[in-house]
Design a protein around this nucleic acid. Structure first.
Lengths: 129, 129
DNA sequence: CTGGAGGTTACCGTAAGGGGAAGGTCAACA
DNA sequence: TGTTGACCTTCCCCTTACGGTAACCTCCAG
């Protein structure tokens, strides 16, 4: 099938598929007319990529996951390590975002949000509370 | 004071300060020898920038906040809108990360993490559960 | 006077594509 | 047969917020 249909079936964009080809993550066959031809197997791989990306893995990490997937001599330990590392990263980002949320809530509370110039947001940013 | 000291006092890097100058966010004076000369006021502005960045504002959003801060005719409403928009964005990112965390936990649970190739992580990524 | 710490500019690289131009291809329809 | 519109191709620039490095300049202490 052509690129747009493959992209749609994997929940990705045609642009992303071309990018994945450019970095040799997934290189489809070509038709005589030069069009990319995606097989069912290609689409399955693209879905794998999409799911892994949705879990927060970078494209290079997805490359590692795919290598494990394709390697019958793999140890599941290696995949689990990747997942647990990513889990730690995600949890750290969560903490960071929670801190931001807390700061932003504090700022919002400090400001009347009216037509006057007095503003606790700007005061807090200027003075550090 | 010189760039390194100003950066340290604001909790930033010299590289960041040069970047802020390059985008006209904060342009310090120059000494006759060509060195940047940061005033106390500059450092206060840099601290403002650092705090706003730590809250998740982009550099362009910081520029808007600084403009409000410097404008005596501002309405605090405008600052509050910026904060509340950012708060919404942060909350959306939080939800997104929580979904990732949930997915990653599910993957980790599905995998023994041993020396065998059988791996629920790779199975789940391949099949979509 | 010399060495080292710290300053300067300038250029390349990042992650993961998005946007858009210029042009080839295909299928349907008059 | 001609044409139109949808879809494909490659190519190149743009994004964020700096980090790294090179080549070179300046200042200060010993």
């Amino acid at each position: 099938m052509n690129i747009s249909q493959a992209a749609q079936r994997a929940g990705l964009t045609a642009k992303a598929l071309r990018y994945y080809e450019s970095i040799d993550l997934l290189v489809p066959q070509r038709n005589p007319n030069g069009y990319r031809e995606y097989s069912q197997s290609d689409v399955a791989t693209l879905q794998f990529i999409q799911r892994a990306r949705a879990c927060g893995f970078t494209v290079e990490e997805v490359r590692e996951l795919l290598a494990l997937y394709r390697n019958p001599d793999r140890r599941s330990h290696d995949a689990k390590v990747l997942v647990e590392e990513k889990l730690l990263q995600v949890e750290q980002q969560l903490e960071s975002l929670k801190a931001m949320r807390s700061s932003l809530r504090g700022l919002a509370e400090a400001c009347a949000g009216d037509d006057f110039p007095e503003c606790g947001i700007l005061d807090h940013l200027a003075s550090g509370e």
